[in-house]
Design a protein around this nucleic acid. Structure first.
Lengths: 233, 233
DNA sequence: AAGTGGTCTAGACCACCTT
DNA sequence: AGGTGGTCTAGACCACTTG
């Protein structure tokens, strides 16, 4: 016999993916049961399962108990993004990181902020505006609200030194996250602090986090013109 | 004894995640070996492994062979986005989908397009501009280049009826994908076709795909003002 | 009711990395 | 060199979902 090494689940995944690209298994087709594929390829069923799991995650196939595995007819483009701490992001670009606190006030959160958290009741929160710089040039302007009843310690943090971004990441792990992207025209503060003409198109990254049911923070990060966010891979 | 059911890997994941949020395992700490956790919780090592895998994917912990598992000091915010076929996206919003071909020409790809593919040689490509509508209102304007030597069949497709987006998704699976987001001010065609004043901020979703080493297509999708892209979960 | 994916166990060995 | 995560096998049982 040919003394080949054992199949790894990535081998199995690649084999099946190739067959899908091949049209051996065409869109909409039902694939053989995991067990049959295992027998055919000569590996354990769980190895096929692992491979399939990965293909399902990528959006190439769809699995249902009893229904079996099908090649998706409308493959979904699925992309994953890392949104690091801003300091880290700047430093990884090889730039010098800078930070400025713009304002810090305790006030009732407006309806739009309450809505992001899904809150009904008026709530007093810490409102922080800050600017992150790369090589002394504006990089990201952030407008953040922090629920100070959930994170009372934040009230004692010197935000002129340490950014709320960084403090929260290091001290307030979250259990739920909402992220969304959109574009907006610079105006007022965002234009001023990013040193760009009013009307410039800005990418906004809006993040809201909770710990269990409790709101932690919500932030709109306005990236300076030219900013791009690229997916992993 | 209490007749509890067996631990699932999600239970184990949740237990460990709670401990991390608890600071039982603080940022930077080394976690016990998988096997010790398995013994402590009373499950198989592989079950702990599965849980850890998930936590590592989410960016909460970092694993290294021999080095063990550590709680990340700078947890990364990681978000996954689905970018469906535009027709599907519109229909899932409950709107009526519409499509218009704007132009279709065979021409040499400009340097910017070649750069996206990482190509050096001048290449003749099919250049397609099209508009997707939701309830008869402009939704996404797409500016697309297709390598017609890799996908010659596209030359015979009636793009006035079927969008290139859809045809490609159904007929040209890709093996590599690049996705990036940025914001841009509407001008010229993008403003005109999206029926928005020049200068409006637009979210651009740029996607480039390859099959193995061969370029398939690259597209800049300009979303109408107000468009938001939300992460899964 | 029955088929198929989902997961757990126990044991073994491999592969990578740090010391 | 040795420790730790990574994965494979074989078998069993569970859970969902469809016919």
């Amino acid at each position: 016999m040919t003394g080949q090494t054992r199949l790894s689940w990535t081998d199995v995944r690649d084999t099946i993916r190739t067959r899908i690209l091949n049209r051996t298994y065409a869109p909409g087709d039902k694939l053989p049961r995991d067990e049959d594929i295992a027998i055919e390829l000569g590996c354990a069923r769980i190895t096929v399962h692992r491979a399939m799991q990965d293909l399902a995650l990528t959006g190439l196939v769809e699995r249902k108990r009893k229904g079996g595995t099908h090649v998706r007819t409308d493959p979904v483009t699925r992309a994953t993004f890392d949104i690091p701490i801003t300091r880290r992001e700047v430093e990884q670009r090889g730039s010098k990181y800078g930070y400025q606190l713009i304002s810090r006030t305790l006030q009732d959160a407006p309806a739009s902020v309450l809505a992001r958290f899904g809150l009904q009741q008026p709530t007093r929160m810490l409102h922080v505006k800050a600017l992150h710089l790369a090589d002394n040039r504006p990089y990201i302007f952030e407008d953040r609200w922090i629920d100070s009843s959930v994170s009372p310690e934040i009230l004692d943090v010197d935000l002129t030194t340490e950014s709320a971004n960084e403090w929260l990441v290091h001290n307030k792990p979250y259990s739920r996250l909402d992220v969304r992207f959109y574009a907006i025209n610079a105006k007022g503060e965002s234009a001023q602090h990013l040193a760009t003409p009013a009307g410039s198109a800005l990418l906004v990254i809006e993040r809201t986090t909770w710990i269990e049911q409790d709101p932690i923070t919500t932030v709109q990060a306005y990236a300076a013109p030219g900013y791009q966010l690229a997916a992993l891979n």
